[in-house]
Structure formats: C-alpha cells, structure tokens
C-alpha cells in the first residue's frame, strides 16, 4: 500500500518509542498495541498456552509474552516470531478466565513489531500477511490467483517456477474443479470504488497513528 513507512521511518519510530517509554514497555504496549491494556490482567494461569494448536511452535507462549512485557523485555518480545504463530483459532480467548482478547493482542503485537521494523525478517506468516494485505487492498478484494503467484515467487523467479511446478497437480485440480481462474491474473475482481476504499484505509491509519502517538 502506498504511503507505508519505509525502513528508515521504522528505525526512527523505534528510536522515538524507546526514548518515550524508556523501561516502561507495559505502558508502551497499553498505549500502542491493539487491546494492549488487557495485558496487565493476565494472572499467569497458562490456559491459553496449553490451548494453542501451534503451542509447541511458540518460542514464548502468550502468558510468557505478557509476563515479558511486564518485565520490560521489549526487544525479546518484539523481535520474537511467536506472535506470528497465531492461527486465529480463538481457543485461548474462549478459555481465558480473565477474558483477555489474546488473539487480538497477539495480532496487535505483530502489527506493532512490524511497524517498528523489529519483526523477524524471515518469517513466512509475516510475509504472507504483508502480501495478503497488499493483495486485497489493491482492488478491495482478495485475488487468490495473484496471491498464490506472489507467494510462490517471493523468493525469486527460479524458486517460484520450482514451487509452481511442485504445485502443478493441485493447480490443475483447482482449475478442473473450476475453483481457480487463470483470468484472475489479469486484474480480476474488485470493488468499483477502489479510490474511496483506499482513501478510507489511509484515513484510518492516520487516525490510529495520531491516537497512538505514532504519527510524525
């Protein structure tokens, strides 16, 4: 999406955040992360960590992340790839005895880490997320064909061809069952008011940045 911060802006944002919050990472999270004000309500029961389908793959489980936030372990949290393991299954949310919106907080932490440029550079879900966002905000609707191709070719042309070949059977099956259309590559479907759609998103980001002290 045009208008997004570049790497330099990111580093700058991070510097400014460090200066503003010093050791108080909890306050930083409360003010800048979606639903971050819930973090302090965790009582370390661990039910979320035990409920996560991808639990074994998290370096730091959600309650640990909450505790690390309170303990001021800012860098370890924001550079972690743990939050990117969330499958949005909401198991943790419905079991949390304190009703923390854990899924949203994890997404929020990922958003914030990405925004500051601290998110891990090689993280497939992060890549997917960025690609997906760009994919659907371009026309207002997700374009599965283009999404696949972007994903396959994200590591270069050769890797993409290889990946495409390996997925050939599946691709043919999808075409055969009419669940994929090659025509989608050529623009594909989308909303009519793309301009309004994109303007609205820009505005939303601007408001949110203002509220969170992230703008300029």
């Amino acid at each position: 999406m045009p208008g997004d911060a570049g790497m330099g802006d990111m580093a700058d944002l991070n510097e400014r955040a460090l200066a503003k919050y010093r050791n108080d990472f909890l306050r930083e999270v409360e003010e800048r992360v979606d639903e971050g004000h819930w973090v302090k309500m965790c009582m370390q029961c661990g039910v979320c960590a035990g409920s996560c389908p991808f639990g074994p793959h998290w370096e730091h489980s959600p309650p640990k992340i909450f505790l690390m936030i309170r303990a001021g372990k800012r860098e370890a949290v924001l550079t972690s790839d743990s939050m990117w393991m969330c499958t949005s299954c909401y198991n943790c949310v419905v079991r949390c005895p304190r009703k923390l919106p854990i899924t949203t907080i994890m997404h929020g932490l990922a958003t914030y880490a990405q925004r500051l440029g601290l998110a891990p550079k090689v993280q497939p879900t992060r890549d997917f997320s960025i690609i997906f966002w760009e994919n659907f905000t371009r026309t207002g609707r997700a374009n599965e064909m283009r999404l696949m191709l972007r994903l396959w070719f994200k590591e270069g042309f050769a890797a993409g061809v290889k990946k495409a070949l390996s997925m050939r059977d599946l691709g043919l099956a999808m075409l055969r069952t009419k669940r994929m259309s090659p025509l989608e590559i050529l623009g594909g479907h989308g909303v009519k008011d793309v301009k309004g759609f994109q303007a609205m998103i820009r505005k939303a980001k601007e408001i949110e940045d203002r509220r969170r002290g992230l703008s300029g």
Partner: peptide, 11 residues
C-alpha cells in the same frame, strides 16, 4: 491432561 506448566512454561 493438556496444558503448560507456567513455572518455566513446560508443555
């Protein structure tokens, strides 16, 4: 029983 021992976060 499935869960995580939060003293050290052991699954």
């Amino acid at each position: 029983l499935h869960g995580v021992d939060t003293e050290g976060y052991r699954r």
